[in-house]
């Protein structure tokens, strides 16, 4: 079971001969009330798909930028129900844009995986990315996601061996998230080499679109990645724009501008 809107969106980008732009921002950031506006700026700037992060107390896969945003969100009192509400607001205003939730596993486990899948689907969410839930531990979630028409996007890494890539992509839906580098989230000056090899090895195991994330921050890198990927995933660079801005409104404008720049990048491959 997968999510039709997500599949169609990625297929449409492919038909246009370009990569999709996938943008990430955490809920509760820069504030519980402002998060939906920030995500709207991503979409207005040209993101095809958005990921809304569920801030966590222990973001072991995130670098300093997203750690800071999560910290701001949690201090601001963001709750799981607020994350779902932000997804609902964004999905309702943008019926053609797939909205994914990206979250560490424990908040879903605590909420109840079946209940979370039901409530995420009811909010209009298209699926989940669960970066610390390996495929071996995911059977319960996959069943719940399938029941509610949600995609489950698994992450693959440069260290993933070919045999394991096949096991992962056989269980995933929507797309495969290929981590461009070994490391945590955050912008980098170089993203290309390992990512291209990983994308090729992943494609050898699946028909699913392969989208590449970790480190991309500008149009040049987006174009470079778009040359071999079906989608380009950008998170920390958007978060940094909001952190650097003097006001929330200035932050949203900067997010819109960066999304537009990246949207041009993914069309330049």
């Amino acid at each position: 079971m997968t999510n039709a809107l997500l599949d169609q969106t990625l297929a449409a980008a492919k038909a246009e001969g370009r990569a999709a732009l996938i943008g990430y921002l955490p809920a509760g950031f820069p504030s519980v009330a402002g998060a939906a506006q920030a995500v709207q700026a991503l979409i207005d700037g040209g993101a095809d798909v958005v990921e809304i992060g569920l801030p966590h107390s222990d973001p072991v896969l995130d670098g300093p930028t997203i750690q800071t945003a999560d910290d701001i969100a949690l201090r601001g009192g963001v709750r799981t129900k607020d994350v779902l509400e932000t997804i609902r607001t964004v999905a309702a205003a943008n019926p053609t844009v797939p909205v994914l939730c990206m979250t560490y596993w424990n908040p879903v486990d605590r909420y109840g995986q079946a209940r979370f899948a039901a409530d995420l689907a009811a909010a209009g969410g298209a699926g989940c990315i669960l970066p610390d839930l390996p495929v071996e531990e995911a059977d319960g979630w996959l069943a719940a996601a399938a029941e509610h028409g949600l995609a489950t996007v698994f992450v693959v890494a440069p260290s993933s061996r070919d045999e394991r890539l096949g096991i992962i992509t056989a269980k995933g839906t929507g797309f495969v998230y290929a981590a461009a580098v070994m490391g945590v989230t955050g912008t980098r000056t170089q993203v290309g080499e390992m990512a291209e090899d990983l994308a090729a090895r992943t494609r050898a195991t699946t028909e699913l679109p392969v989208c590449v994330g970790l480190g991309v921050s500008d149009a040049g890198q987006a174009a470079e990645v778009a040359a071999f990927a079906d989608g380009v995933i950008v998170g920390s660079a958007f978060v940094q724009r909001i952190l650097d801005a003097d006001s929330p409104e200035a932050g949203y404008a900067a997010v819109r501008e960066l999304a537009a720049e990246l949207a041009r990048g993914v069309r330049k491959r």
């Binding site: 072991v60 896969l61 596993w105 970066p131 610390d132 839930l133 390996p134 071996e136 531990e137 698994f154 992450v155 693959v156 890494a157 440069p158 260290s159 993933s160 061996r161 394991r164 992962i168 981590a179 070994m182 490391g183």
Partner: peptide
Amino acid sequence: RFIPEALVA
């Protein structure tokens, strides 16, 4: 074993 894919190997 609840770990990111990058650490599985």
